[in-house]
Simulated assay, not measured.
Amino acid sequence: MTSKLAALQQKYPNAVSWAFGDSAAMADELAALVIAGKKTASCSSLHAFQQDDDAPAIGSFSIILSGSQQPLCVIRTVALRLIRFCDVTAELAQKEGEGDLSLAFWRAEHQDFFTRAGSFSPEMELVFEEFQLVEVVSS
């Protein structure tokens, strides 16, 4: 554990540490969007959310890690909603801050992501998390 991570865990005692996505490159890309203020939301499958002992709750803090597992920033969950993949709106997709911010881009990328995870269906339920950037970790 790095000294920066240890200091953040002391400052935010119940925070969990994790990286976005399913690759180091994706973790770096998505964390950069959070730091830039472009990404204020994320989602997971309901199944994955229910299996996660460290799933976010409203008001909880998360330490976002880079692809190399270094702390980059801290976020706080401000809203959670249950929604089917096919019901995600353009407004929600835009909050994820990815690509051209369109619903079409969001659907294509997330379908690929959930397919890689082995669980895609247009009717699948998602937990959509909105968050605020609390702190950027200095390099």
Rank of each mutant, 00 (worst) to 15 (best):
S3E: 13
K4T: 12
A6D: 13
A6Q: 13
A7N: 12
A7F: 01
L8S: 12
L8A: 13
Q9L: 14
K11F: 13
K11N: 14
P13C: 15
P13I: 13
A15M: 12
V16F: 11
S17R: 12
A19P: 02
F20W: 09
S23C: 04
A25S: 12
M26E: 15
D28L: 10
E29W: 07
L30M: 07
A31K: 05
A31N: 03
A32D: 13
V34Y: 02
V34Q: 01
V34S: 08
V34I: 12
I35Y: 03
T40M: 03
A41H: 04
S42I: 08
L46R: 10
A48Q: 12
A48P: 04
F49V: 01
F49A: 10
F49E: 07
D53C: 06
P56F: 07
A57F: 06
F61I: 11
F61H: 15
I63F: 10
L65T: 03
S66D: 07
S66E: 06
G67L: 06
S68A: 14
Q69L: 10
P71H: 12
P71F: 11
L72N: 08
L72G: 09
C73E: 07
V74P: 10
V74Y: 10
V78H: 00
A79N: 08
L80D: 05
A90C: 04
E91F: 03
E91S: 11
Q94H: 04
K95Q: 12
E96W: 00
G97Q: 00
E98M: 07
G99E: 00
G99I: 00
L101P: 05
S102F: 01
L103N: 05
R107T: 00
A108I: 05
Q111R: 15
D112R: 14
D112K: 15
F113I: 05
F113G: 09
F113A: 12
F114H: 05
R116I: 13
A117Q: 15
A117K: 14
A117I: 06
S119D: 11
S121T: 12
P122I: 13
P122Q: 10
E125T: 08
L126Q: 01
L126T: 00
F128G: 00
E129I: 00
E130C: 05
V134R: 07
V134Q: 10
V134D: 08
V137F: 10
S138F: 05
